[in-house]
Amino acid sequence: MSDNNFDKNSKKNVIQFALMLSVICSLLITGAASGLKNLQQENIKLDKKANILKAANLINKKPSKTEILRLYNEHIKEGMVNQKGEPAKIEADDTLHLYYYHTNNVIDGYILPINTKGLWGKIRGYLAFENDGQTVSGFSVFSHSETPGLGGEIENAWFRKNFKGKKILNSQDKFVSVGIAKGKVKNLPKNLQDHYVDGISGATLTGKYLSEGIKATLTRYEPLSISFRQKEMKTLEK
């Protein structure tokens, strides 16, 4: 087992060894990374689609990959609108992106991408609306960096399902957005309860940032929401 005259601490061996190790490790790592890259990208795209469907309440727990793709292709269409809320054909710097949820080209609702600052990092998700332009139909979180167990609860079903049915217009038809309350909604005055969801205890800041982000996003998409309220958006254009 012992090689004659082999000194593992010789300068020559140190350099040889280091080189060999570096080469082998690099090959291994790069091979794995590039080889698997396509699969990984696909996973991310699939996850996004699943979240869009989740926000629109089209899927529940653990759907299969084929189901996600089928539902997405059948019911979701990406769209663009300009600052005035009119459908845009060409993408400009200020174009707003969204997703239409349709059945046979009749629009049932629309889904807006939410991208806001959170306590630690960005919170990305989708907020879905019915075609009346004011009732929320669902909310999903695609990625976040909040503390697990505290702010991280935003991705859990109990928090998200409370968004369903909330209204972004108050009884005087004024835009008030939807936000996360500090504490339970039932402790708020009656006239505010339709515009808030239950907060997460111990995660007031996450709730605050999310509320602000949602309000800013909804303000940008208000012209579009108004067209929905005025029943101007019924079918997808060809």
């Binding site: 087992m1 012992s2 082999f6 593992k8 601490n9 061996n13 140190v14 060894f17």
Partner: peptide, 11 residues
């Protein structure tokens, strides 16, 4: 038997 002692941890 081949790892040089001074770069052991790094290796």
């Amino acid at each position: 038997n081949k790892i040089p002692s001074n770069i052991r941890i790094i290796a």
